[in-house]
Amino acid sequence: MNAKFRIWDLHCHLSGVPGLTPEERLGQLLRYADRVGIERLCVYMGMKWSQDPKPDDFRRQNDEVLRALSKHSNRAFGFVTLNPNHVPESLAELERCVADGPMVGMKLWVAKKCDGAEIDPLIARAAELKAVIFQHTWFKTTTNYPGESTPDDLVKLAKRFPEVPIICGHTGGTWELGIRAIRDQKNLFADLAGSDPTAGFTEMAVRELGAERVIYGSDCGGRSFASQLAKVHGAAISDAQRQQIFHGTLYNLMNPILKAKGIQA
């Protein structure tokens, strides 16, 4: 593997990976990451997921990520998984894992749509901690889950926190819609992960948002690194833009919390 690009992967999970323990699974992910030249993985959610996890459940999932991180802290970053249906417990978990623990980001999935003000305390506290904020989104032609946000929902949230960078997970999946939805909301960033490697995705994202708002991620183990790296390696963009997407954009978002925590990377 030539090391032409420095690559960090924004979007990795411990599910869909062989291994009995979290650290075994992260070790497996790293074995494949090594083969395709990925230096660091951002990991969130546990070995078993639920769409609307109770506090006990998301605490268990975060424990699993912490356990995996402790074994591979030089290769991985952790994001805390929270549930806006349980705000007090989520705030406590944010303290435990980010303020007092090694995690550097916050992941919100499909328990509750992100457009309502109930979520605001989580965003506000994560921003204070300089944590990287990631919200899953999809625009499904089929039907979204009841609590599944669209990029439009995320724009409503982002407007309430115009100074806080937030990552639009999957760029809505149906990226031709997602990119347009977030284009004018400059504090929103596009995650390329977890959709088919349809040609044109990255070119449109760079054209409409600029590479400095686009981030490579895989959504492994459910996805291969290969199909998601291809969105960047295969796009008709410059190598400087490729490098920005593979590492630069995420590094810019993460740098404040890495500095604050004294993490060298």
Binding site: P197, A226, L229, A230
Partner: peptide, 18 residues
Amino acid sequence: HAPFFYPESSLLKLVESD
């Protein structure tokens, strides 16, 4: 599945797997 997919996707799968 190119050109609908980036052809690099399948080519990289050959690299990712041992």
